[in-house]
Amino acid sequence: MSFGPFLLLAVLEGTVMAAVLALTAVGLSLVFGVMRVVNVAHGEFYMLGAVLAWFITYYLPFPPALAWLAALIIAPLIVAMIAALADTLVLKRLNYDPEATIVATIGLLYMLQQAALTFYGSDARPVVAPFQWRIQLPWFGYSGYKLFVVLAAVVILAAVWLFMTRTKVGLVMRATQVDRDTAQAFGINVDRVYAGTFALGGALAAAAAVLIVPIQQAHYLMGHDPLLLSFIVVIIGGLGSIRGTLVAALVIGLSDGVISMFFSPTLAKIIATLLVALVLVFRPQGLFGARA
């Protein structure tokens, strides 16, 4: 294969990566923006989504397309419930103290990982894609499902966007983000907003995982990379800023896909993590807002 088509393939792969990353990272960003909580267990919500998708498609006696569709709805719902529970039982009782919540979500990370290991096992298992057709390009064939993933991610993100900007619940969430105390004074039930936000964040990660799981297999340790990449995206895009997160996801996803094709993926990750650290050190104001 000559260079041009090779680059095209890299860009296609990068776009798929960016789409899934954007979904995951927007979940993390939303949680930080509204609740000021850095959720280290976010990658485990992603992992849970993938593992649940495997269970659902394996045990439901439906044809693949229908079973997968069921997973896309049920898995995020279950993860959302787990997240809401974690918020009510743990984070709320810590009064959302930034440092304590990080320690607590690290604990949550281990607990969820262990739960997956115990009930699902240490094997990586595939989920059958809902459909199998390939698009034949002049140089190579490309999975139609991967393009569908991009489309689905765009649709879900658009839905989140409309939800945040056009609905009353979204308005309440944004009001709470701007000023928690004032929101409370105006009769907004902040507890419920927080639980809902945490649930929505988890659901987005789970949805991203259900999309990706026919391409990558479900494994109990699969949450690590999405967590790290989401961190990178959210910090570079500006914590709490959804628009910044989307742009950064596109840039990081694409460049990661392209760089990984031509260079060692390890080197790419080293550069990315160092970049995040340096951004936080030297340009914190644009990233942590007025708080840092």
Binding site: I270, A277, L280
Partner: peptide, 25 residues
Amino acid sequence: LLALRTAGVSFMIVTLMFAQAGYLT
């Protein structure tokens, strides 16, 4: 020298990222 220019949550993330970069190296 670098991380102590930040505090709190930023300090946690910066140290986490440096450690991750070290591990990958």
